Each structure stands twice: as structure tokens, then as C-alpha cells.
Computed example of a mutant assay.
Amino acid sequence: MSPWIKQCGLFLVALVILPKTTESKKDEVLYCSACLAIADELNYSIRQTDPKKMIHVGGFRLKPDGSLTDKKVPLVRSETHLTELLEGVCNSMSDYALYEDPVSKEKSYKRFAPRENDGGNFPDFKNFKFDGPESSSALKFACESVVEELEDDIISLFANESDHVAKTLCSEVSGHCTSSVFQHSEL
């Protein structure tokens, strides 16, 4: 056989084998924290929405008798509202930083920036690791990945007002928070 055929064969074998061996494992701390942050931010946004507001849902087709099939549902848990909230949820990831528990030395991303109605309740900053914009951009990327992967599940969970949305979403649905470290934390 000519040498170029052998080289082409080796190249093709490498193309088949290398992608399987170079797959990287997702950073569990990063993805679990992103998932928990999504749940927290959505819960906060839902609590800030007026529960009395209603939205019209249904089709705009006429029934045989000439009436429309239209009904009002609360805006708070509507699919339309949840989709809007989900589109902007990852923009708040810059308010999170890597936190190391002083006792257990466990790491996770936690919110350090107080919200408007928190009354200026600032956390203890000495346990946060501020690594600059690359840290929050990694969390934002993880957030966007989780949202893209689980958008329908997230909307479904929040629309049905599940009691433990964070635990259900991050442990059971996504599997991002499966280690024993996260099972003991505040899911």
C-alpha cells in the first residue's frame, strides 16, 4: 500500500476514536449552582409579579356557534410569562460568585448581590472568591446550557407550582446535583 493511503486510514481512525476520548465531564459545582440559581431567580421573579394579573389564552378560532374559545389564566404561572422570565434569567448570573463554606470547605456559586427589597442585607464577603468576569461568564454559560437543554421541563415545573422545584429540577430532572455534597445543601 502506498504511504498516503496508510496516513489517510490512520487519520480516519483518529477521527473516530478521539471525539469519544476527549469528551469533558461537566463541572458539577458549576452546573448544579447554575441550576439552583435558575430556580431561585425564577421563584423571585414569580413572587414579584402581581398575582391578580390575568392573561388571555386559547385559540382565536371560532366555534360553530360563532363564539371564541378564550379563557383567562393568572399571568404568574402562564407559559407566556414563564418563557419571558426564562429568557432573561441568565443575565443575573453576574450577581453570583464562588462561595466556599468556612466549615465544610464545600464550594458552590451563591448570590452575593442583594436584591431591591432585601433591605441592603449584604452577605459576608470574606468567603466569596471573586475571580473576575471569567467566573461569572462561566456561570452564565452553564445557565444558558441548562435553560437550552431543559426549557420545557423548567416551564412545566414552574407552571404546575411544584413545592420543591429546585430539588426536582436540579436533582431529578437534570441530574446536575447528584453528589452527596449537594444532597445536604439547601435544595
Rank of each mutant, 00 (worst) to 15 (best):
Pro3Ala: 05
Trp4Gly: 11
Trp4Asp: 14
Gln7Met: 11
Gly9Phe: 12
Gly9Ala: 05
Leu15Phe: 00
Val16Leu: 08
Ile17Ala: 12
Ile17His: 01
Pro19Leu: 00
Pro19Asn: 03
Pro19Ile: 01
Glu23Leu: 12
Ser24Cys: 08
Ser24Lys: 10
Lys25Gln: 15
Asp27Asn: 15
Glu28Asn: 10
Ser33Cys: 07
Ala37Gly: 01
Ala39Ile: 11
Glu41Asp: 10
Asn43Ser: 14
Asn43Phe: 06
Arg47Glu: 11
Thr49Tyr: 06
Pro51His: 10
Ile55Phe: 00
His56Lys: 12
Val57Ala: 08
Phe60Gly: 08
Arg61Glu: 12
Asp65Asn: 13
Asp65Gly: 02
Gly66Tyr: 02
Leu68Ile: 09
Asp70Val: 13
Lys71Phe: 04
Lys71Pro: 03
Val73Glu: 15
Val76Pro: 00
Ser78Glu: 02
Thr80Leu: 08
Leu85His: 00
Val89Glu: 03
Asn91Trp: 04
Ser94Gly: 09
Asp101Phe: 05
Pro102Ile: 02
Val103Gly: 04
Glu106Ser: 08
Ser108Met: 14
Arg111Met: 13
Pro114His: 08
Arg115Cys: 05
Asn117Phe: 08
Gly119Cys: 10
Gly120Val: 01
Asn121Ala: 05
Phe122Pro: 02
Asp124His: 04
Phe125Asp: 09
Phe125Cys: 10
Asn127Pro: 01
Ser137Glu: 13
Leu139Met: 00
Phe141Ile: 00
Phe141Trp: 01
Ala142Glu: 01
Glu144Met: 09
Glu144Lys: 15
Glu144Val: 04
Val146Phe: 06
Glu148Asn: 15
Phe158Arg: 03
Asn160Lys: 14
Ser162Phe: 08
Asp163Leu: 10
His164Thr: 13
Val165Asp: 03
Ala166Ile: 10
Leu169Cys: 07
Leu169Asp: 11
Leu169Gly: 07
Leu169Lys: 09
Ser171Tyr: 08
Gly175Trp: 00
Gly175Thr: 01
Cys177His: 01
Cys177Met: 00
Ser180Ile: 07
Ser180Thr: 14
Ser180Arg: 08
Val181Ile: 12
His184Cys: 04
Leu187Trp: 12
Leu187Met: 08
